[in-house]
Every structure is written in structure tokens, then in C-alpha cells.
């Protein structure tokens, strides 16, 4: 089904062309990304796999408008992200992208509902925060503070926060990195389901090869380069993931 949706709209949603990102740490230059090429199709579920330090977060940041490549170009549809100023970048993140982070990054002093509100107040036609929480199965936990929620629940709040803006692109940075297997399956299942039911283009990065199989396509990164792009013949259901 995913592949069919992708085939209908074959023009890539995102294009990365020879993108590199060099950081300067004191006197040392570190190349986190070196000439990466990638195209992401509309409605696709893509997993980027690689060990830590392989450049996957940097790649995610570059396509999410959180960072700019030092060289190379990045396109979102016909908008060149790599040439955007800070204001346009902010607008892009606000209107088009939903982020999910490994450590959830919820505001500790706000309830689950309010954490979702932080996102919904930004855009013109968001989901209702209650609706977003219902979608992630947390309707009854809306009034709880992050410290009163389990890790899996917190990550689901973060997913609700990302979803509530109705983004076109969902970017998840090690969303299960801090979760146990059982909880991780729930979160991954939710992401799979959202991609399937809403056609939400989703990019998930992970260092865990066990997760790679849940997407149709897997990109493997090594030392800032894209080492391999693999089509998965058999997509694994999240509940069957194991490690």
C-alpha cells in the first residue's frame, strides 16, 4: 500500500544532493556528513540506520530545517532548504515538519495536553490537542506532567505533539532509543499506523538494525556517507520487532 501511494506521486518530496556538514570543535574540524545523496518520496516510510557518529542525526537535522549543510543542496519540493534564511527555515519547520526526539524533549513544567498545545498554538489549522492525544492512546493522561508518565507515554505525547500540527513530514530521531522492547513496539506500531492511515511521510533514524525492517526502504550510513539504500521485500510489523 505504501509503495502504491509512493508510485502515484513519484516526484520526491525531499532531495539531498551532495550535502556535507562540517563542525568546528575548537581547532578541530569534524565532518559529520560528507556528500550525502538521497531522495525521499511523498508518503514514504524511510528508516536511516547507522552506528552513532555515522551522520544520521546531522542528515535528519539538515532535511528538517534545523541545520544547514556546509556544502551541497537540499530541496523540499521546489523549495531549496539549503539556501533558506532563518525566518524561512522557521516557517518550514512550523508548517511542514513534525519532530520526535530520543529523549522526548517535553517541557517538564507543562502537562501532556499543554505540551501538545505548545505545537497547536503555532499553526492555523491544527488537530485539537485532545484529538492528538486520543490518536496516540493517551486521552486519559492529558492532565499528567511528564514526570508522572512512563517513557513510552512521554514518547507518545511527543508524537501527539508532532502530529497535532498536521505536518507533511515526520522526522523521528531514535524514538525508541530510551525505551524497552515492549514499549518500543507500541511506539513503532503507532508510527507505522500513522504512515499507513494518513499517508504521512516519515523518516526514522536508528542505530538498531532490528528496527530497519519496519520500513519499505532502509538507508544505511557509515562515517557521514550513505553506504547503502535497500528496498525491503518484507516489511515487518512493529509487533514482531525483536532485539
Amino acid at each position: 500500500m505504501v509503495a502504491e501511494t509512493g508510485a502515484v506521486l513519484d516526484m520526491p518530496l525531499l532531495r539531498v544532493e551532495r550535502a556535507s556538514r562540517v563542525y568546528r570543535m575548537g581547532d578541530v574540524e569534524v565532518a559529520a556528513l560528507s556528500g550525502a545523496d538521497l531522495a525521499i518520496r511523498r508518503g514514504e516510510f524511510l528508516v536511516i540506520l547507522g552506528p552513532s557518529g555515522s551522520g544520521k542525526t546531522t542528515l535528519l537535522n539538515v532535511i528538517g530545517g534545523m541545520d544547514r549543510p556546509t556544502s551541497g543542496r537540499v530541496w523540499y519540493g521546489d523549495m531549496e532548504l539549503s539556501a533558506m534564511g532563518a525566518v524561512a527555515q522557521t516557517a518550514y519547520r512550523r508548517d511542514s515538519v513534525g519532530f520526535i526526539f530520543q529523549f522526548y524533549n517535553l517541557v517538564p513544567t507543562l502537562t501532556a495536553y499543554e505540551n501538545v498545545q505548545v505545537a497547536t498554538e503555532l499553526v492555523s489549522s491544527p488537530l485539537d490537542p485532545s484529538e492528538a492525544l486520543r490518536l496516540v492512546g493517551l486521552a486519559d493522561r492529558a492532565g499528567h506532567f511528564p514526570s508522572q508518565l512512563s517513557g513510552g507515554e512521554q514518547q507518545r505525547v511527543a508524537i501527539a505533539r508532532a502530529l497535532a500540527k498536521r505536518p507533511e513530514l515526520l522526522l523521528a530521531d531514535e524514538p525508541t532509543g530510551a525505551l524497552d522492547l515492549q514499549t518500543a513496539r507500541g511506539v513503532l506500531g503507532l508510527l507505522q499506523e500513522l504512515n499507513r492511515s494518513q499517508g504521512l511521510t516519515s523518516v526514522l533514524i536508528t542505530h538498531n538494525p532490528a528496527i530497519a525492517g519496519i520500513a519499505k526502504r532502509t538507508v544505511r550510513m557509515v562515517s557521514g556517507r550513505i553506504a547503502e539504500i535497500r528496498e525491503n521485500k518484507h516489511v515487518i510489523a512493529a509487533k514482531d520487532v525483536t532485539w
Binding site: G64, M66, V87, T90, A91, Y92, R93, R94, D95, V97, F99, F101, N105, V107, V118, A119, L122, V123, R161, K165
Partner: peptide, 8 residues
């Protein structure tokens, strides 16, 4: 995070 969400 706020900036990632699109806050200016």
C-alpha cells in the same frame, strides 16, 4: 525543541 517546532 521550541525552535524545531517552528517557534521563531
Amino acid at each position: 525543541t521550541l525552535k524545531a517546532l517552528g517557534y521563531s
